[in-house]
């Protein structure tokens, strides 16, 4: 799958040839199916011993234009879960409102919150699958980070097709190409993730965000990061990338044999 939200959910060009968009304009009663307009890029997340770290930058792009630079793409739910959104921002806002109403309905029962991160992930995946089956997809890829029914770290993804996936580390969009290999090195399997400290996990995720900023043309250096543990959610929404490496540009001269 191409990392650009504009290409999500479409057949691969290299496999099937260029996609014939006129296909969508064919006559028929249902003329839905849209395209993402204002988009957020990668979300990355990593499990550790006591919880999960999740991060996403604060940019909403309009094509190649870095149009909105203060868009928070991590959303907390019920003090035990964080949802990270990639893809279309208007659909993200729709899902945010949907989760608000879910939260209100949860408050009707006096037992307090019962939905954990696993419940939330299943709920979101069913919503996404329903919408794709109506040929009216919500153009998002989401990561759900939090704790499951046994208060153990939980991390899973769901996308615009309703596809779900779970792993000790996950990343959406460009992050799937660039961050995931780095995170897998730190936590190749569940056992390895269960030995990671919070500090190690934070460092790995921050390093991933940095690499993404270097190489993703739809990213920025301001980001949100959250740590979910039994103690609750620690969400920071105005972090700046630190310790970037640029000074080596000084050593680069020309494009081949040039020395000055």
């Amino acid at each position: 799958m191409n990392h650009l939200p504009q290409a999500w959910g479409r057949p691969r060009d290299d496999y099937y040839g260029a996609y014939d968009a006129s296909y969508f304009q064919s006559n028929g009663p249902n003329q839905h199916t849209q395209q993402p307009i204002v988009t957020g890029t990668s979300v990355v997340a990593l499990k550790f011993k006591d919880g999960v770290v999740i991060a996403a930058d604060n940019l909403a792009s309009y094509g190649s234009l870095a149009r909105f630079t203060d868009v928070k793409r991590l959303r907390t739910f019920a003090d035990t879960s964080v949802v990270g959104f990639g893809g279309d921002v208007s659909d993200m806002q729709y899902l945010d409102r949907l989760l608000n109403s879910l939260d209100t309905e949860e408050a009707y029962t006096s037992s307090g919150h019962t939905l954990n991160a696993r419940n939330l992930h299943i709920y979101l995946s069913k919503v996404l699958y329903k919408r794709r089956s109506d040929f009216n997809p919500l153009w998002n890829q989401v990561l759900v980070a939090g704790l499951d029914e046994e208060k153990k770290p939980f991390l899973a993804s769901a996308d615009l097709l309703g596809t779900t996936f779970s792993a000790p580390s996950l990343a959406t969009g460009f992050g799937a190409h660039l961050a995931q290999p780095l995170l897998r090195k730190v936590a190749p399997d569940e056992e390895a993730a269960a030995t990671l400290s919070k500090e190690q996990a934070l460092e790995a995720v921050k390093e991933s965000m940095k690499v993404l900023f270097y190489r993703d043309a739809r990213s920025m250096d301001k980001y949100s990061i959250a740590v979910v543990t039994k103690e609750g959610i620690d969400l920071k929404e105005n972090e700046k990338l630190e310790n970037q490496s640029w000074a080596f540009a000084d050593q680069i001269r020309g494009y081949g044999t040039q020395v000055n």
Binding site: F68, D70, K72, Q93, Y94, D96, R97, N100
Partner: peptide, 11 residues
């Protein structure tokens, strides 16, 4: 206090 519109982003 002032509340955001449900779902809004930006500040």
């Amino acid at each position: 206090v002032e509340l955001p519109v449900d779902g809004e982003v930006g500040s």
